[in-house]
Design a protein around this nucleic acid. Structure first.
Length: 305
DNA sequence: AAACTTTTCAACCGCTCAGCC
DNA sequence: AGGCTGAGCGGTTGAAAAGTT
């Protein structure tokens, strides 16, 4: 891929997401690949290409993406056209940062569905699977760094409850891929060690394998076992942005409802996933990153904590 | 101010699925 | 039934922006 000097007259690439219309460029500086004798362009779209695609869809409608190249002269593969349309050009796309409500919904949906971005996007009008996926990946990193749980406890329990009723339905209705998460036979217990948790203490769980559904884990009865938070990565923690809230709209639930992290903090059992550098330095130097000590679920995981 | 690090996000890739022949 | 094709999905990459030292 070549996102070389992507700046254009419209300065598109420099625009923040919440302002950006598209990152299209007017310069054709993209990689060109030769496929079957044809020339297919890669890389950032130019506004001219956008216009061609929009025009094409207006005339012919969505779908049949491979025909775009033939009929419009656009030197892009069908896949690329579909993606561009879906993620940037189609009408009613919401631009800008996710609202707290949307973030909350994403967390809930992920707890139920796992990495089913397209399905999650269906619940968020105007949002794309790509956006949601990017958001979630960012969230994972942040949570890991901050040692915070990926899911607030209320989500865990909500997911558990809903799944208990949904399992019956879904197994019979059968989205095969979805059910994989729920099938005991397909479920590999991740390399997570649970540490001193009582189900009645509530859950604040962060799997090092974000694909694993909280609900699945709970359904497996792991909730009654010990667990441990994945400790923050060993490298230096960076600041989270001040406005960031890892549990949008659920502070109350996430904090008030949290089973008082200090309950865990005295945990004797400390597990250290392989490859993580210890002793872990929580980075005393970090400033506004640090959530209150009693909120940092991961804090119990570091040896000195 | 410069160098370095981290984050963001658009776009690509490989894979799977569904429909058609 | 098997092969082909198009569409869609999820994972990953990498350039640029933003932040930090």
């Amino acid at each position: 891929m070549s996102h070389t000097s992507n700046e254009s007259e419209d300065g598109s690439r420099m625009i923040q997401k919440d302002q950006a219309e598209s990152p299209s460029t007017d310069e054709g500086n993209s990689v060109v690949s030769f496929l079957g004798g044809g020339v297919l362009k890669k890389g950032p779209w130019t506004s001219a290409e956008d216009a061609i695609l929009v025009d094409y869809v207006k005339k012919h409608g969505e779908g049949n993406w491979n025909a775009v190249q033939k009929h419009s002269g656009l030197s892009r593969c069908g896949k690329s056209c579909r993606l561009r349309w879906a993620n940037h050009l189609r009408p009613n796309l919401k631009k800008g940062a996710f609202t707290p409500e949307e973030e909350q919904l994403i967390i809930e949906l992920h707890a139920k569905m796992g990495n089913k971005w397209a399905k999650m996007a269906a619940h968020l009008p105007g949002r794309t699977d790509n956006e949601i996926k990017n958001y979630w990946n960012t969230r994972i990193k942040r949570c890991q760094r901050a040692g915070l749980p990926l899911y607030p406890p209320n989500i865990c329990f909500q997911s558990l409850n809903e799944n208990q009723t949904q399992n019956d339905i879904e197994f019979s209705v059968g989205d095969k891929r979805n059910n994989e998460h729920l099938q005991p036979s397909c479920f590999d217990i991740p390399d997570v060690i649970f540490d001193n948790l009582n189900t009645n203490q509530g859950l604040s769980y962060m799997s090092p394998f974000p694909d694993i559904l909280v609900s699945s884990m709970l359904n497996q009865g792991l909730g009654s076992q010990d667990f441990v938070f994945t400790p923050p990565t060993s490298h230096r923690l960076k600041q989270l942005r001040g406005s960031e809230n890892l549990f949008p709209s659920v502070h109350c639930n996430a904090t008030c409802g949290l089973p008082a992290f200090e309950q865990f903090s005295s945990s004797e059992k400390i597990h250290r996933p392989l490859g993580v550098g210890f002793p872990y330095d929580p980075d005393p130097g970090r400033k506004n990153l640090a959530p209150p000590a009693d909120l940092v679920s991961g804090s119990h995981a570091h040896p000195n904590g």
